[in-house]
Every structure is written in C-alpha cells, then in structure tokens.
C-alpha cells in the first residue's frame, strides 16, 4: 500500500511537471492586463478573469492571426497529401518488390531525414527568390518535402511490411499485376498506417520554423509558429496575447492527441523499437 502511494506520488509529480507550463499559460491568458505584472503576476488564480487577450489576438490589425492559422493549415495539408502519395509508391516498392539498389535508396532516404535543414536553406532561398516564389505556399511546401517525404517513406515501409504476404500471393496467382495488387489490396489494408503517418507528417509540417521564418516574411504568408514567435515587439512583449495565442494553438493539438494517441504512439515508436 505504501509503495502504491509513493508510486502515485511520483506519477502526479511527473504529470505536474509536464502540465504546469500549460496551466500557467492558461492562467496568464485569462488574467486582465493589470495582473500580468508585479506581485499579481505570480498568482495562481485570478478573481476577475478577462477575455481581453483573446480578443487582442484576433483583432490586432498588424498580425492577421486567422490568416496565420489558415496558412499553416494549407501548407501542412498539401505537404502531407503530396508526400504521402509519393511515399506510398516508394514504400510499397521497398517493402514488396525486388529491385537493385534498395538498400542504397533506404540509406539515402535515411540520410536525407538526418540532414540539418540549414544545409539546404541557402540554395532553396536563392532559388525561390529568383523565381519570385518567396511569400507563397509553394515556397514552403517545396522545402518541407525534404523532411516530410523521408518521414513518410520510413513509416509507411514498416506498415507495408506488416501486411501478410499471402494476400498478395493469391492475387498474383489470380493474375493481378503489381500495380493492381498495390491499389486493390495493399493500399486499403494499410490505411490505418497511412493515417498515422499523415498525423506525424502534418504535425512536423505544422511546427516547422526555420524555413517559414526565412522564406515567408510577408504577414499574409506567415505560418502560425512564425506569427506567434514574432508577436514580441521591439520593446514590450505582450505576454497576455502570446499566452492566449499559445492556448488557441495548443487546444486542437491536445484534442488530436487525445483522440489518436494510440496511433501516434505506434507511429512514433515503430522506427525506434525492434520487435
């Protein structure tokens, strides 16, 4: 019994450490501006909660917050769809077909996923500038593929390998071509794995900062991480607004994590854990 109490104490401590910053962010976001400074800044509660910070986030003309959200949604969605379609073919070929240079291909994909993004930014930036594609969705989707595609190929290959070979063998006997086998049998079966991969790629694209910071500098094309990071003005930092914006961005992620946690955990651990 005593052991159990100690155990739960540790678990609570761990949860507290993980969740405290979120709690603090929330409290800060509903404090009225006068309570953000001085002694009240350290208070764990507020007696007169205010939505002023939330109103500021959405109404400030200098930073179109909704537009940032929209930009991130567009860029992350297209990146995810695009890389998953390309990666499905590649992953199937790697998992199921025989061809020369398979291990080299895998090695290259893995190496690309390890590339520091800063190593490609200069040519990408110069290229986009030359063709007037900075401050556009394309300008971000293109470089995002560098990390999205390897991530997708790597995860999908694991899922494709788990599909029993017999299913395909029997289709082969029935005269189905590799292409038919791919889209009639494999793709539907691997849909859950594809979805898991899509979540991981989407989050990675949604959170990307370096390319977004350098390529899309126009307010109309900034993504949400860049938008929030540049909330801080030259002299004052609007902590209340930043807290409100953080809460707004965190809530959908929390909901997504609660809904899909099993799948996300499976996707995250498939690469690292040998079974």
């Amino acid at each position: 019994m005593r052991k159990k109490i100690v155990f739960y104490l540790f678990v609570c401590l761990f949860l507290f450490a993980v969740l405290f910053p979120f709690f603090w962010q929330f409290i800060t976001s509903i404090k009225p501006p006068t309570e953000l400074f001085g002694e009240r800044a350290f208070s764990f509660y507020t007696t007169n909660p205010s939505l002023q910070s939330y109103i500021n986030v959405f109404t400030d003309q200098k930073r179109p917050f909704l537009r940032y959200l929209w930009n991130s949604t567009v860029v992350a969605s297209i990146t995810t769809a695009f890389s998953l379609i390309i990666a499905s073919f590649t992953a199937y070929a790697i998992a199921r077909l025989h061809f020369r240079g398979k291990n080299i291909l895998l090695g290259v994909i893995l190496a690309v996923s390890m590339f520091p993004q800063i190593a490609t930014i200069a040519p990408v930036y110069l290229f986009l500038q030359q063709f007037d594609q900075t401050n556009s969705y394309f300008g971000l989707i293109l470089p995002y593929t560098t990390f999205a595609l390897p991530l997708a190929v790597w995860n999908l290959t694991t899922y494709y390998k788990q599909i029993p070979l017999e299913l395909e063998e029997s289709a082969k006997v029935d005269g189905a071509t590799a292409f038919q086998r791919f889209y009639r049998i494999i793709v539907p079966l691997v849909l859950p794995g594809t979805f898991t991969t899509a979540i991981l790629v989407f989050i990675a694209a949604w959170n990307e900062f370096l390319f977004a910071l350098t390529i899309n500098t126009d307010e109309l094309y900034k993504t949400i991480p860049v938008g929030i990071a540049l909330f801080q003005g030259q002299f004052i930092i609007p902590w209340g607004d930043i807290a409100a914006a953080s809460v707004i961005v965190t809530i959908p992620l929390v909901i997504m994590v609660l809904f899909f946690q099993r799948w996300i955990v499976a996707g995250l651990t498939s690469g690292a854990v040998k079974e």
Binding site: N207, V226, I264
Partner: peptide, 15 residues
C-alpha cells in the same frame, strides 16, 4: 506525455 511533443517548439519556448 504527447502534448509537449506535439506543440510547436516556438510555443514551448515562449511559455
């Protein structure tokens, strides 16, 4: 445990 992983690093850095 998944929440800190899922939020943008920028947001956690600001927190």
């Amino acid at each position: 445990v998944l929440v800190p992983w899922a939020i943008p690093t920028v947001v956690s850095a600001l927190m």
